[in-house]
């Protein structure tokens, strides 16, 4: 089902609903202003995409919303509670982040790495370790990584690492998913597979999703809402059907865009 046309109902399902909201948010990175007096309201069932040119601060905005960066001013709330009032461990059960890249000074194995996703739920000697390992096996299988569970992380390819990070997020099992370019390094097949899996997972959990993507066409296919970040100018937020169009994209990238229609969908390409 295409989430863009799906009914993004605001009523809760069988799992508790989630919300992520920002109010009067001003974010800076050094001298650069990323957003000013920005407000946002994300609820269960909504899938948001962030579009913007290089260096406009998409990642900084995502990190700020995840509580990993302090804004200049404004409030961010998760489930109606101010981010600052959360303990990191409790926040990690509600909100998960996929980062652009990972470090590995002392690399672990694939299995060990995916199991780190259970950290917010574990005590010192994990009592539920058997269940955790079952979850890990399932996630690795879903992302076609089962064959390499004993490999060292630093021997994986870029795409394999990406899928490993997503599998780790599956184990973290948050309600709010903040993803920084989830399709980086992925081939066509895995791009679609990963976005389908993530979308399905978020829906099952009655969660919400916010992701930075460079591919407009993937956003219009997998997102219900979009944020356009045109650098210094006012940001544009709203449903995909109203925000994403030829004029807005040309304005966003300051580059001519051509629009094609096929299979009932609109596709956008740079001229």
């Amino acid at each position: 089902m295409n989430p863009a046309t799906r009914n993004t109902s605001r009523t809760g399902g069988f799992k508790e609903t989630v919300t992520l909201s920002a109010e009067g948010l001003t974010v800076r990175a050094g001298p650069k202003q990323i957003c000013r007096d920005f407000s946002l309201d994300i609820r269960s069932g909504e899938h948001w995409g962030i579009l913007g040119g290089n260096g406009v601060g998409k990642t900084s905005l995502l990190h700020t919303l995840a509580g990993l960066r302090t804004p200049v001013s404004g409030r961010i709330k998760v489930d109606e509670v101010d981010l600052q009032d959360y303990k990191r461990l409790h926040l990690a059960r509600k909100l998960g982040v996929l980062f652009q890249d990972s470090q590995d000074t002392f690399p672990a194995t694939v299995k060990e790495t995916v199991l780190t996703g259970r950290y917010p739920y574990q005590t010192f000697w994990p009592p539920g370790q058997r269940e955790d390992i079952a979850l890990a096996d399932a996630a690795l299988a879903q992302l076609n990584l089962a064959q390499m569970q004993d490999r060292q992380v630093d021997t994986l390819s870029g795409g394999e690492r990406r899928r490993l990070a997503i599998a780790t997020l599956f184990l973290q099992d948050p309600g709010l998913w903040l993803l920084d370019e989830p399709t980086n390094h992925l081939d066509f097949h895995h791009q679609i597979q990963v976005l389908e899996l993530i979308g399905q997972r978020v829906r099952e959990r009655n969660g919400a999703l916010l992701m930075v993507l460079h591919d407009v066409n993937l956003i219009s296919r997998y997102c219900s809402h979009a944020i356009l970040m045109p650098g210094a100018r006012q940001m544009l937020c709203g449903e995909v059907s109203t925000v994403i169009n030829k004029a807005n994209l040309e304005d966003l990238y300051r580059h001519p865009v051509c629009e094609l229609t096929g299979g009932g969908r609109k596709y956008y390409f740079p001229e």
Partner: peptide, 12 residues
């Protein structure tokens, strides 16, 4: 050891 941001996002 995996990374500061990753550790923070997982609750450290």
């Amino acid at each position: 050891a995996v990374g500061d941001l990753q550790a923070a996002a997982l609750g450290v």
